[in-house]
Design a protein around this nucleic acid. Structure first.
Lengths: 343, 343
DNA sequence: ATAAAAAATTTACCCGCGTAAACTTTTGTC
DNA sequence: GACAAAAGTTTACGCGGGTAAATTTTTTAT
């Protein structure tokens, strides 16, 4: 490692004995230059530790090698986990991921899209807030930037959608619960933030009807993204009122269930499938913490890797095709039932 | 909103009737131009929706308005929450935060620092991995980029450190537990990733000795960042062995405690301070989920806001002072004991 | 009203790199 | 060894905006 500092590509080209345009080509794609040339550049590279100025590089590019990743709520470990996988894939493929969380705030989601636009990213993976999202802002954004939606679908927006098949989630849990005990009631927020919640309720009702059972939906108060607290308060209430229609509760998602289980514990209600248990509780998502609840939570698991991989692959195809795929596809991955102790 | 598209600052200056250098000055600091001028620019601004090219802007700047935020493990909601607060403060102050997670991997931490350097950020808020961090890489980085460390301290690195006072955490929990029942043993990982863990053990031992009590440290196997699982497996083991030295367990951190509580539940061990309880469990951090454990977790809470605010304020002072503060300060915020049901 | 200070304007050059065109050298093939 | 193709070199210009210097205009103070 020499201590003479290289200020720009010109100087670096000089010390490596290669012309600047060729060096520029190398940084754009190392395989686009002859092997011997690449060798000389790389020799100089670890002797002088030069890195091209990213701002100058991107200034003249129509598209950069940046990929934007936007999630609605990073404090939810579910999204943190997906982000981890997606980031890895992007880096592998030579892109530079930039991570953003809307933190549950539509205004902030808009700001993110705004600053994302000026980053001229090659593509964006967007998990929108859902119902709260500013649809027209997202629509405009998607027209200007190659975007793949994931997790939450918004009608017609983005070049593709990749998510989980809510019907598969709910039909598996409902089928399992109904087969092994009393049929479940459906526990959810009165005004859910996420479109998946609506799909799950509808799937629950249709599945129950198909089984010839009467559906019961229990809606609890509360808004925002503090699902655990909402589940807990709602749980305490329905348990105090003794207003649950059945002894089996199917929560819309694991975070609600975590709160609900906490309410059960505090109310002295024993959850599980043992003979001494008063209630069975199941849910959806396979949240990273669901294996540590008391009792551990029976749930339907996302195929994290499939969703992440397919979202990223789709985005790469989109980028390669220059920003437009033929028709907008919606890919849904089925769930896998995870049987634990709560039901 | 006119539909003529503005391509660059030249054109925007033309339509706003102001010269380009003045417009440039405006974007650098809106208050640096006369009020009437600002008015004309802003009128044009919402008529034509032009935004300066961020790459061209930053190319010639020694320092940008970017701030890097690096955390060791974003899937830990503790960090997700801190990040949320910090991001907000940065945006308020007119900076552009960029978020990175090392995902528990030292090699990735290095890559992040590398790409961060080429972003020429005005400053960086770094929560390092800790023991696993490549110390020399971080040291080199801190010499080149104005950096404030938080959460995990690394000796002498960065211009300042802001974190929580582990001694305050542990002394409060130990004092409380010892006063209200059997004195606690200390439950931790054999080889903790984070320097805070060591400080907590030391604080535990010294506090116990001060109280004239015998310290007992229970170390469990396991490496990596899956603390809950480590706590659970370790918990199952010590409960099966019946090897706990006392009926009161103080976990090094909440994530371990979440796993430990799960082990207690599965082992049929009732936790709490009621007469029918076999074990008391307490911990440190006030993890976002600790209020939803079964039973809810007695813990010592970080002053999230104080840490975030002070870290950000320190970074801003550092930036204003041109990259160096006088002497390296280490600011530690005390804990607040949160009494819940587990102890 | 007038001088002094503050703010804008004009002009001009720079930054670090992308990239096109014309030309030269190196490769690989028969 | 001749020759076409591939790769590299030179030269030159552009991108979009930062910024300095000299000049003009506007504002503020007296």
């Amino acid at each position: 490692m020499s201590n003479t500092k290289i200020r720009n590509m010109e100087e670096f080209a000089a010390v490596s004995g290669i012309s600047r345009p060729t060096v520029s080509k190398y940084f754009h794609d190392p395989n686009s230059v002859r092997k011997s040339t690449r060798g000389r550049i790389e020799a100089a590279l670890d002797k002088y530790d030069y890195r091209p100025n990213i701002y100058a590089m991107n200034q003249n590019r129509k598209l950069t090698k940046n990929i934007g990743i936007v999630v609605p709520y990073l404090a939810d470990p579910f999204f943190a986990e997906i982000v981890r996988v997606i980031e890895g894939r992007c880096i592998e493929a030579g892109f530079t991921p930039s991570l953003f969380s809307s933190h549950g705030d539509p205004a902030h989601e808009n700001e993110i899209l705004d600053s994302l636009r000026s980053m001229k990213p090659a593509g964006v993976l967007l998990a929108p807030l859902g119902r709260q999202s500013d649809k027209s802002a997202i629509e405009t954004f998607c027209k200007n930037v190659p975007t793949v939606l994931f997790d939450s679908n918004l009608d017609g927006m983005g070049e593709a959608f990749i998510g989980s098949d809510n019907h598969s989630f709910v039909s598996q849990t409902v089928e399992y619960l109904s087969r092994t005990g009393e049929s479940p009631c459906f526990f959810e927020m009165k005004t859910p933030a996420n479109p998946n919640a609506n799909k799950r309720r509808i799937a629950y009702i249709s599945m129950m009807e198909r089984l010839g059972l009467e559906p019961h939906v229990v809606k609890v108060e509360g808004t925002g993204w503090g699902f655990e607290e909402i589940g807990k308060q709602g749980g305490l209430k329905v348990l105090a009122d003794d207003s649950l229609p059945t002894n089996t509760v199917l929560c819309s998602n694991d975070r609600l269930a975590i709160g609900f289980l906490s309410a059960c514990y505090e109310s002295g209600v024993k959850v599980g499938r043992g003979p001494d248990c008063q209630l069975r509780v199941a849910s959806h998502d396979d949240h990273p913490f669901s294996r540590f609840t008391c009792p551990s939570l029976t749930t339907a698991a996302h195929d994290y890797n499939a969703v992440s991989d397919h979202a990223v692959d789709t985005l790469f195809r989109l980028i390669e095709s220059g920003g437009h795929l033929g028709t907008r596809t919606e890919t849904l991955f089925p769930a896998r039932l995870i049987m634990r102790d709560s039901a």
